[in-house]
Amino acid sequence: MAKLIFRLLLSFVVFVGIFMVIQDFLTPESFGKYGHYRANAIDDNKLVTPQYKGEQKCASCHEDIYDLKSETMEFDEDEYILHSNLKCETCHTPKIDANTDCKVMPPKIESTREMCGQCHSYQVSRKNKIKMIDLADHNVEKNCIECHNPHKPWIE
């Protein structure tokens, strides 16, 4: 073939070759293993330390409170779940990560009317889903926990 064509083809092949070498050098390992992404990134996403420990961890030390909370209300031969299915950490937000003893920073909470109201305040969107209370009406001067034990909220 003509000299020019040969030279063009040769330089094309050389540049493509150099490009492929550089690309191979720069692509991280594990890229392309499962698709067009770095497969090791899946394991990178696991490197977060969990904060929430689960109920059983709380129950291992605070067994008495856990047993109290697990009681259901019996009324008229019906069983009402109330707070018995509620997890400890729903209200007691953990302050430190799951691998540390909770005595380091105990998850204490401010029991205010607003705190109980976050779930129990009257809203039309909550009808038939949860027992609601009108906070502006019901014992306005008192804190909820003065009458209702949050771990056994019904009054016999």
Partner: peptide, 23 residues
């Protein structure tokens, strides 16, 4: 959201599922 991948790969539930009071 990663569905709390670091939790579900250990057999736990995601944090939002864990705390939901009404399931």
């Amino acid at each position: 959201c990663t569905f709390c991948y670091h939790r579900i790969s250990e057999g736990l539930d995601p944090a939002c599922v864990e705390v939901c009071p009404t399931e």
